[in-house]
């Protein structure tokens, strides 16, 4: 696909730890069309945030390519990279810890403009900040407030404003609503979807919440121990999950409806194993109900079993 906004090929990010080499992201590939959303789901520690920050080159990848409009940013010269940096931004889970508490709302939203030397006149900055505050639903009377005076929802609006004031094309949203109460979460999800339409944004949306990921994504990738287990269009993944891990994940979601009481289900046994020096074969083998000897030997390729539906499992062909 040549017209992809972003194409990630065989991306790897390993960390050296005292216990050995930690495979946080291990050979992940995907491509993203402009204006669409790819959701990344998986349990804690499966490498979602590492994937997000590596795609933005906040972490240097151990291997692989990241093509932004066809150019590999891992091979770019510094100057060239700095030119495209503003076009790729990130929204974090807890805006509080990523916001400087001594800066006012206005200063926080203006900062990216100043750091990236995008605006020079005070007047232009003020105007753009005021406009952005309006866009993300922050009342203008809050311009001089400090983050600690605001609730989580408003702090997240600041985080969104900071990411969007540079008018990026691509935004990694790392659990942007996970710390929020449901009624506030819904406000922020609506805002993110409206902004995607009006600013033609492309999202990599990271979350562990399966109902959120279905709601916001066109396509979903399920990760387990640094690898992609399954990738499919959102509705297809939910109606026809093929990988045993995806099936277990979907079965584990508590459903808010009257007939859920005492629902019996197949429980996934055990817990996620260590990402340090992983064994060859399928990463999910230790917990998989369908595991066979074959699963534990060679590497398992991600195979397209239906148009657009990719599965990494020997028993789903």
């Amino acid at each position: 696909m040549s017209n992809a906004l972003l194409e990630v090929r065989n991306l790897k990010k390993y960390f050296n730890t005292s216990a050995g080499l930690l495979h946080a992201v291990d050979d992940v590939s995907f491509s993203l069309q402009a204006g669409s959303t790819l959701g990344i789901v998986g349990e804690s520690g499966c490498g979602k945030s590492t994937l997000g920050s590596t795609v933005l080159f906040l972490n240097e990848p151990t291997g692989g390519e990241i093509l932004f409009h066809g150019d590999d940013i891992t091979k770019m010269k510094k100057r060239e990279f700095h030119r495209i940096r503003p076009r790729m931004q990130m929204i974090f889970q807890d805006p509080y810890s990523s916001l400087n508490g001594r800066m006012s709302v206005h200063q926080l939203i203006a900062e990216p403009l100043i750091v990236n030397k995008i605006c020079h006149s005070k007047q232009e900055i003020s105007q753009r900040v005021a406009q952005m505050m309006d866009t993300v639903g922050l009342a203008s009377r809050l311009a001089n407030a400090y983050p600690h005076e605001l609730d989580g929802g408003r702090r997240q609006r600041i985080g969104i404003a900071r990411a969007l004031i540079l008018e990026p094309e691509f935004v990694v949203c790392d659990e942007p609503v996970s710390a929020l109460d449901v009624s506030i979460q819904a406000q922020i999800l609506n805002l993110l979807m409206d902004l995607q339409d009006s600013m033609h944004l492309t999202y990599l949306f990271i979350t562990h919440d399966l109902s959120v990921v279905r709601h916001i994504s066109q396509e979903i990738m399920v990760m387990y121990l640094g690898q992609c287990m399954e990738k499919a269009p959102a509705d297809e993944l939910f109606t026809n999950p093929m990988h045993p891990y995806t099936q277990a994940l979907l079965a584990a979601i508590p459903v808010p409806s009257a007939d859920s009481r005492h629902k019996r289900r197949e429980l996934l046994q055990g817990e996620v194993s260590s990402p340090v020096n992983p064994k060859p074969g399928c990463r999910f083998a230790a917990r998989c109900p369908h595991v066979s000897a074959e699963c534990c030997s060679g590497s398992i390729p991600l195979t397209e079993v239906k148009p657009g539906h990719f599965v990494s499992c020997l028993h789903c062909r």
Partner: peptide, 23 residues
């Protein structure tokens, strides 16, 4: 309002109906 705020696991992506304002 609480029910209107949770994204559906089964239906199609409707717009969420959040509760305005804060606690």
């Amino acid at each position: 309002g609480l029910f209107g705020s949770i994204p559906s696991l089964t239906g199609h992506a409707k717009r969420l109906q959040p509760i305005e304002g804060l606690l």
